[in-house]
C-alpha cells in the first residue's frame, strides 16, 4: 500500500492510491517524510489519480506535507484530483493555500 514515487530534477512525485483514512495515513506519512528528508526536493507533487476514498485524514496528510515543504523552502502541489474528492479538499480550505490543481472542467491557468 506504500505509494509509488519518482524523483527527477528536484521534483518528488508521490502517487497515492486506494483509500486514505486514519489507519493508513500513518504509513504513507512516514514513508513520504523519509523521502522528503532524504531528497529535500524543491517541489513535491502529490498525485491523487488512483485514490478512490479519502476522509479528513487525507486533509491532515496534505497539510502536514505542506508545512514540511515550507520548512525546506519548497512548494507542494496536489494534482489529478478525482471529482469525488474535490469537495472534501475544498471544504478543508486547502483551495486558499493554492496547492490544489484546478479542476479539468474549469479554466486552467498554467503558470
Amino acid at each position: 500500500m506504500l505509494p509509488k514515487t519518482s524523483y527527477n530534477e528536484n521534483e518528488l512525485i508521490v502517487y497515492l492510491s486506494g483509500e486514505i483514512d486514519h489507519h493508513n495515513a500513518r504509513s504513507i506519512r512516514e514513508y513520504t517524510d523519509a523521502l522528503i528528508q532524504e531528497k529535500k526536493p524543491a517541489r513535491l507533487l502529490l498525485n491523487f489519480s488512483a485514490v478512490n476514498f479519502m476522509d479528513s485524514s487525507g486533509i491532515g496528510l496534505i497539510m502536514g506535507r505542506y508545512r514540511m515543504m515550507q520548512l525546506y523552502g519548497g512548494s507542494i502541489r496536489v494534482v489529478s484530483i478525482p471529482p469525488t474528492l474535490r469537495r472534501i479538499m475544498e471544504l478543508s480550505g486547502l483551495g486558499c493555500l493554492n496547492v490544489l490543481e484546478r479542476s479539468k472542467y474549469s479554466d486552467e491557468n498554467i503558470e
Binding site: R29, S56, S57, I59, G60, L61, M63, L91
Partner: peptide
Amino acid sequence: ERSGLGFS
C-alpha cells in the same frame, strides 16, 4: 495530524 475537520 488530525485536521480538526471530522465534524465539519
